[in-house]
C-alpha cells in the first residue's frame, strides 16, 4: 500500500511540475504588463509591515488611488519581517513587468545598514524608484515626571537620562542616540517593540524621554500629558508649530522617515510613468490629502531620482555621524 502511495505521489509531482512549466500560477487574478495599457491584471503590493502600521496604511491608501486612476486591483500583501527586508527581497526578485510594486521606507536603506550585519543589508540598487510619497517626522518627547522641557534642561539631569526608542535600526533610535551624543548628555537607550509600548512607558514615567513618530505622540502632546522638546525634520512640523527643530536648538541632527514607490530593477519606462502619473493624480485628491493630515504625514511628492539622491545623501550623513560619535546602533560589526 505504501508503495502505491509513493508512486502516486511521484506521478502527481511530475504532472504538477509539467503544469508549472506552462507558468500558470498566480497569487491573484491576473499578471503583469508588457505593453502600454498598464495594468492588464492585478498588481501585488507587498508591504514590509504588519496591518495597522503607518507603512501599511500608506500602502493601502496608495493602492486605493492607483486602482481608481488605472483600474484593476492593487492588493496590499503584508509581508512583515526584518524592518521590511523580506518584502524588499520579494520585490527585488519579482518579474520586472509592473506586476509587483511596493511602497518602501527610507530607514531600511539608510539606517538599517548601520545596525545589521553586512549580508543582511538591502541595497536601493536592486530597485527603480518611481515616486516619492510622504515624510513621517520624529519628535523627542519627555514625560511630565522627568522635569525636562527643552534641550538645555538636560544639563540638570542627575544620573543617566533614559530614552525609549521604537526599536533597533529605526530612525527613532538614531535620532535620540544622536541627540544625546551631540548634546553630551549621559543617556541609556531602552528599546521597545514599536511606538505604542514606548509611548506607554513614557506616559507611565518608566522612561524619561522617547523618540516617536509625530502621529503616535501628537494626541498626548495636545492633552499635555507629555512634552515635546524638538522635532528632527529639516523644518518645523505643521502639526506642532511651536516645537523647534533640532537644528534650531543648536544640534546638528536631522532624521526623517520617508516612503517612496519602488519597482523591480529593469521595469519598462512606460509602466513606471503610468504608476507615477497615477500617483500624482492621487496626491491631488482631497481624500488623500485628508489621509495625510489625519496621519500627520508631510507630503514628499518628489521624483524617483530625487528620492535616490536624498537616500544616498542621508545614508552617508548618518554613517558619518554614527562614526563621529561612536554610536553603537546594533550589531553591524
Amino acid at each position: 500500500m505504501r508503495k502505491q502511495t509513493l508512486s502516486l505521489a511521484a506521478v502527481a509531482a511530475g504532472a504538477a511540475l509539467a503544469l508549472s512549466a506552462c507558468g500558470g500560477v498566480q497569487t491573484t487574478a491576473g499578471g503583469g504588463s508588457d505593453s502600454g495599457d498598464y495594468p492588464t491584471g492585478s498588481v501585488n503590493m507587498p508591504v514590509g509591515a504588519s496591518a495597522g502600521g503607518s507603512s501599511d496604511l500608506i500602502s493601502r491608501q496608495v493602492s486605493r488611488g492607483l486602482s481608481e486612476e488605472l483600474g484593476g486591483s492593487f492588493p496590499v500583501i503584508n509581508r512583515e519581517g526584518a524592518n521590511g527586508a523580506l518584502a524588499a527581497a520579494e520585490v527585488a526578485k519579482a518579474e520586472p513587468d509592473g506586476s509587483t510594486i511596493s511602497v518602501q521606507n527610507a530607514s531600511l536603506f539608510a539606517i538599517t545598514p548601520l545596525a545589521v550585519p553586512e549580508d543582511q543589508v538591502t541595497s536601493i540598487d536592486d530597485f527603480d524608484v518611481v515616486q516619492g510619497v510622504s515624510r513621517d517626522d520624529y519628535v523627542l518627547v519627555a514625560s511630565k515626571g522627568s522635569g525636562f522641557d527643552s534641550i538645555e534642561s538636560f544639563q540638570d539631569a542627575d544620573g543617566k537620562v533614559t530614552y525609549g526608542t521604537t526599536g533597533v535600526g529605526t530612525g527613532a533610535q538614531l535620532a535620540c542616540a544622536l541627540t544625546f551624543n551631540v548634546n553630551d548628555t549621559p543617556a541609556e537607550a531602552i528599546p521597545f517593540d514599536g511606538g505604542a509600548p514606548a509611548l506607554t512607558a513614557l506616559l507611565g514615567d518608566q522612561v524619561d524621554t522617547a523618540c516617536l513618530q509625530v502621529g503616535e505622540a501628537i494626541e498626548n502632546i495636545r492633552s499635555g500629558k507629555i512634552l515635546p522638546i524638538v522635532v528632527f525634520g529639516p523644518e518645523r512640523v505643521e502639526f506642532l508649530p511651536d516645537v523647534p527643530t533640532a537644528q534650531e536648538s543648536g544640534l546638528d541632527v536631522e532624521v526623517a522617515q520617508y516612503r517612496f514607490m519602488t519597482v523591480p530593477k529593469g521595469t519598462p519606462q512606460d509602466v513606471k510613468d503610468s504608476i507615477a502619473e497615477a500617483m500624482q493624480a492621487t496626491f491631488e485628491t482631497s481624500e488623500y490629502q485628508d489621509f495625510n493630515e489625519q496621519n500627520n504625514l508631510t507630503p514628499m511628492e518628489i521624483s524617483g531620482d530625487e528620492v535616490v539622491t536624498q537616500l544616498e545623501e542621508d545614508k552617508q550623513r548618518y554613517a558619518d555621524l554614527v562614526e563621529e560619535y561612536g554610536i553603537d546602533l546594533g550589531d553591524a560589526s
Binding site: 519581517g81 527586508a85 523580506l86 533597533v168
Partner: peptide, 20 residues
C-alpha cells in the same frame, strides 16, 4: 530571530525568514 535590543541574529542560521 533578530534580538530586538542589539539586532544580533540568534539561532536563525542565516535565514531571513527566521529574522523576525
Amino acid at each position: 530571530g533578530s534580538d530586538s535590543f542589539t539586532s544580533a541574529d540568534r539561532f536563525t542560521f542565516g535565514s531571513l525568514n527566521l529574522e523576525d
